[in-house]
Write a protein that binds this DNA or RNA. Sequence first.
DNA 1: GATTTTTGCACCTAGGTGGAAATT
DNA 2: TCAATTTCCACCTAGGTGCAAAAA
Lengths: 205, 205
Amino acid sequence: TCNGISISGKLKVVLHNHSLWLKFYGQQTEMILNKPGRRMFPFLVYKIHGMNPVAHYRVFLEIVPVDEYHWRFQDGRWSQCEKTENNMPGNLLYVHPDSPNTGAHWMNKEIKFEKLKMTNNKEATNSENKMILLQSFHKYQPRLGIEEVRYGKHETTSSSFTHSFTFPETEFIAVTAYQNAKLSQLKIKYNPFARGFRESYHSEE
Amino acid sequence: TCNGISISGKLKVVLHNHSLWLKFYGQQTEMILNKPGRRMFPFLVYKIHGMNPVAHYRVFLEIVPVDEYHWRFQDGRWSQCEKTENNMPGNLLYVHPDSPNTGAHWMNKEIKFEKLKMTNNKEATNSENKMILLQSFHKYQPRLGIEEVRYGKHETTSSSFTHSFTFPETEFIAVTAYQNAKLSQLKIKYNPFARGFRESYHSEE
DNA sequence: GATTTTTGCACCTAGGTGGAAATT
DNA sequence: TCAATTTCCACCTAGGTGCAAAAA
């Protein structure tokens, strides 16, 4: 596991920024939730192989709850706490904006989920693409979905298969503020938008 | 003509920023060409009515040469000059990035060609969407194309119709530098990205 | 010379960061 | 008091303007 490659049938998916994800995975990745919506960092980038170039596919992401427990960061460690009673709500599906599209299109270059946003606001409505609604202090596992789309005679859509791809190193805990200082230092180190917080920023050549 | 509405069969298209285009049309619109590619301003925004919500359509733009003449700005006026000998080259087609999509999608909101870029560089290759290749000092007329897409049994695509919509007020002359000072003042007045050139910028409340 | 195109630039728009302070 | 969330912010990235000077 955690080798950055996942295979299902004829399809092969590579987690394109695998090594970056591993760095965060080593500190237990945290992702920020807020009302206007926050991007993931790292964001998910895949490379897909083995599609039929002329067939049509819908590519999407599911953010799957890993368990029904509340997690807590204490004494420098994450630990499972009480079980969550209510059914965890949430919009956990995000369809890639290029969907639907041909196999040739999807295989042509990396598939980036750069603009996916996550929120804890139940009333959130992003005009362009719906935001992912999650619960703070819960653990999630992103899962890539690839669905072949067939267009029937009567304008209806029927899918012939759906394949799922999971990369354990992309698991994360949703938070409203970073808990682990080492984790937030990784964010600052690798996210270009956080460059202002790098100690080296003003001293570098 | 120039009322901002165009009808073809069951389809009706409204030029959504009609009044802005009219302001420029009154001064003979100019659009900048350069190597990295330049957006149009105003850019083309349409509202489409009368599609079948569940049918699929491809929406695209053609930048049609109005004539084969070289135009010149002299003594405050544009005039037609010598005829262009060579066949005018160019990539004159720009498929809207949402294509293909359902009638419901297209009719849901205004269709913006905000990110279309124009260039005079024959070797230009924009990774995302191809740039429109035009000739400086030539006159062009944008034309909206709507093509119904039908998916056949054998993964092939066959179109059942294509409708075209032309709005005379969106005609323009391509240039590498603005010729008419009144025209460039309109650009400064209405394009948010040119705000720094507005006289009123620093004196406004 | 004269005209056209290119380059470099200051100045914007638009929006993504984590942190600190305020709020809940 | 404590923990979690929200708000505000300075500081970035990214990239769209017309203009002036340089180049072609």
